[in-house]
Write a protein that binds this DNA or RNA. Structure first.
Length: 222
DNA sequence: GCGACAG
DNA sequence: ATCTTGTCGC
């Protein structure tokens, strides 16, 4: 896939934050995804071992999740894990993987946040700007914001709010399991993002495309 | 100043 | 994220 390079990855934490503040103004998080037109969904994940990172992007058909393409990329892990700056750790190796991608997925699902981020630009939003395609953040734990208790049944959800702003939803993708935290990355809105993720979770808590990417990324020996 | 903190 | 075996439960 063609990518739009926005900045160098070789940055200090304070420079990274400055770029986030500029880029967050470009993120589009109020545009519904038309689920009826979705044909290909990509799951994105990164695994880290002994100072090396491997990215996996798995493209599957929607709504039946048949694998269409898998790409991998590896490199030395370039940046430490700092809450709020995850994209500067995983972005470089993801860029390598995206460059190999032949298909053009209708939407990308990321392991991490979209706008549910202190500066409203988590990894799904950030990479969405580079991809210029719809992206959704799917976090397993919370980075910021609050939510009220939600029902135990699959499909139940509660608004995720930070500083008075709706930034996503806590979504139960599996009955009696901890909710996932879903937020628009770029070119998506909260409700359609949640609806798509629910449709992408037929059996497990993790959405199927992300599960497949997680398995593919974790299989390497640096 | 104190607490919180995606992967 | 990763380090790690068995074990409780549908």
């Amino acid at each position: 896939m063609h990518l739009r390079h926005r900045h160098s990855w070789n940055l200090s934490p304070s420079q990274a934050i400055a770029h986030q503040k500029e880029m967050s103004a470009e993120v589009v998080s109020d545009r519904p995804i038309d689920l009826g037109r979705v044909r290909l969904v990509a799951g994105v994940d990164v695994s880290v071992k002994n100072g090396h990172s491997q990215a996996a992007v798995v493209v599957v058909t929607y709504p039946d999740f048949q694998p269409v393409e898998t790409v991998l990329a590896t490199m030395q892990t370039p940046f430490p894990y700092i809450p709020g700056l995850l994209s500067f750790r995983e972005g470089p190796v993801l860029e390598k993987a995206f460059e190999k991608l032949l298909n053009e997925p209708d939407v990308f699902l990321f392991d991490g946040m979209g706008i549910a981020h202190p500066r409203r630009i988590g990894i799904a939003s950030h990479m969405g700007l580079w991809l210029d395609r719809p992206t959704i953040g799917c976090g397993k734990t919370l980075l910021c914001g609050r939510y009220e208790a939600l029902a135990e049944e699959k499909g139940a959800s509660a608004p995720l709010v930070d500083k008075g702003e709706p930034i996503g939803v806590a979504l139960r993708t599996r009955t009696a399991k901890n909710p996932m935290f879903i937020s628009p990355g770029h070119l998506a809105d909260i409700s359609s993002a949640a609806a798509l993720v629910l449709q992408c979770s037929p059996k497990y808590r993790l959405p199927e495309p992300i599960r497949l990417a997680h398995n593919a990324a974790g299989n390497f020996a640096p």
